[in-house]
Design a protein around this nucleic acid. Structure first.
Lengths: 212, 212
DNA sequence: CCTACCGATCGGTAGG
DNA sequence: CCTACCGATCGGTAGG
C-alpha cells in the first residue's frame, strides 16, 4: 500500500480533530460520523484511514501523546537539569491546561476516567502513557536529588505521585469551576513540597475561548 | 400524582443501578435501554419514572451523592473532632474506593471528567457536590487548627485542595494500574502534609471482584 | 476518497 | 408499568 504525503496530512488533520473532540465528548462519545463532519469528509472516507472505531481511538491516543510530549515534556526538558527542570515540567503542564491546548483539559485525565474501569487495548495505551509520565517525574526528581537540590531522604516515586496529584487536581477543578485560582493552589502545593521558591512563567499564548 | 411505596422502591433500585453503571459507562454512555435491561424493565417503564435522559442523569447524580454521604462523609464524621476526624474522612474515601462501592471508582471523578467541558444542569450538579466536599475538608481542617492540632499558619482551603488531589490521584491510578500501592502513596502524602502519624483502618468489607 | 446501503440501537412518544 | 412504534444516528460494509 502506498501512503501518499497528502494522505498522511489528511490523516494527521483527522487525528488532531479527534484528539481535541475526545476531550469534550470522550473517546467513546466521539462518533465516526461526527468526526467525519468536523473533518469535512464522509464516513466512508474515514474508514479508508481507520478500519474500526477502536483503531481510531488508539491512533487518537497516540496523537494526543505526541501533542503532550511537544507541549509539556519537551518544553519542560528545555530547562537546566535538576530542580528547575522538574519545576519547568510542572509549569508546562499547567500552562497547557491554562492555554486550553485541548478544549476539555488534559486528554489523559479524560481518557483515564473513561477507560479506567474498561480493560482493553485503549486502557492499556492510556496506562502506558501514564506510566511514562510518572517515570519522567520520578527521574527528574532523582536528578534534582543527585544535584543536592532535594533532600536525599525523599522518595522520588512518592514525589512523582504527589506532583501528578496536584497537577491533575488543578486540571479538573479548573474545568469544573472555571476558576484560574486553582493554578495558584497547585503551584503553591508543588513549591511547598519541593521546598522551592520559583515563580511560574505566565502563559505566552492567550488562552483560547471556551467552545460555546 | 400518587407515589406508591412500591414505585419509590423501583425508582431507588433503578437509580442504584444507574449510579453503578455510570462509573463504568459514563453518564452519557449509560443508555436508557441498557439501564432498563439491567433493571429488568422495559424502556417505556423507565420513562414512567424519568421524563428524559437528562432528568435521569440528574437523579443519578443525586443518588450517587447520597451514597457518598453515607459511605464517606457520615463514616468519617463519626470520628472525634479535629485532626482525627479529618483523617477519618480521608480514610473513608480511600476505603470506599478500595471496597469498590462503585465499580468504576469515585462516581464524581468519572462525572467531573465527563461533563467538565460541557456546561449544563448536570455539570452544575456535579460542581455543587464537589464544592460541598471541598468545603467539608476545609471546615474539618479549620476545626483541627482551632484545636491546635494543625499549625495556625496553614491555609485550610489550600489544605483541602491538596487532600482532594491526593485522594483523587489514588482513585484514578488504582483503577488504571490495578495496584493497591497507590493507597499507601496517598496516605503517606496525607500524613506528611498534616504532620500526623495515624495508621489507616483496613477495610472491613472485602473488595468486590471486578466485573468481567 | 465517495455514495449508498446494512442491522442495531439511540432517545423519546402514543396509547393503554 | 407494558407493547409498539417514531426518526435519527450508531459502527461498519460494498462497490467503485
Amino acid at each position: 500500500m502506498v501512503i501518499t504525503r497528502a494522505g498522511e496530512r489528511t490523516r494527521d488533520a483527522i487525528l488532531l480533530q479527534a484528539a481535541q473532540l475526545a476531550t469534550v465528548e470522550g473517546l467513546d462519545g466521539l462518533s465516526i460520523g461526527q468526526l467525519a463532519h468536523a473533518s469535512g469528509m464522509s464516513k466512508g472516507g474515514l474508514y479508508a484511514h481507520f478500519g474500526s472505531k477502536e483503531e481510531l481511538q488508539l491512533a487518537t491516543v497516540e496523537t494526543a501523546r505526541g501533542i503532550f510530549v511537544t507541549e509539556v515534556v519537551r518544553t519542560g526538558l528545555a530547562a537546566p537539569r535538576g530542580l528547575r527542570r522538574l519545576l519547568a515540567v510542572c509549569d508546562a503542564f499547567l500552562s497547557h491546561i491554562e492555554r486550553r491546548v485541548f478544549p476539555g483539559g488534559c486528554f489523559f485525565v479524560v481518557a483515564m476516567a473513561e477507560v479506567g474501569a474498561r480493560p482493553g487495548p485503549v486502557r492499556a495505551a492510556v496506562a502506558a502513557q501514564q506510566r511514562q509520565w510518572l517515570d519522567l517525574l520520578e527521574r527528574l526528581a532523582g536528578e534534582a536529588q543527585a544535584l543536592g537540590e532535594l533532600p536525599a531522604e525523599l522518595d522520588p516515586a512518592q514525589l512523582a505521585f504527589e506532583l501528578e496529584a496536584l497537577l491533575v487536581a488543578a486540571n479538573s477543578l479548573f474545568l469544573l469551576f472555571d476558576d484560574q485560582a486553582v493554578f495558584e493552589r497547585a503551584w503553591s502545593g508543588i513549591k511547598h513540597r519541593l521546598g522551592a521558591t520559583a515563580a511560574r512563567r505566565r502563559p505566552i499564548t492567550k488562552p483560547r475561548p471556551r467552545a460555546g
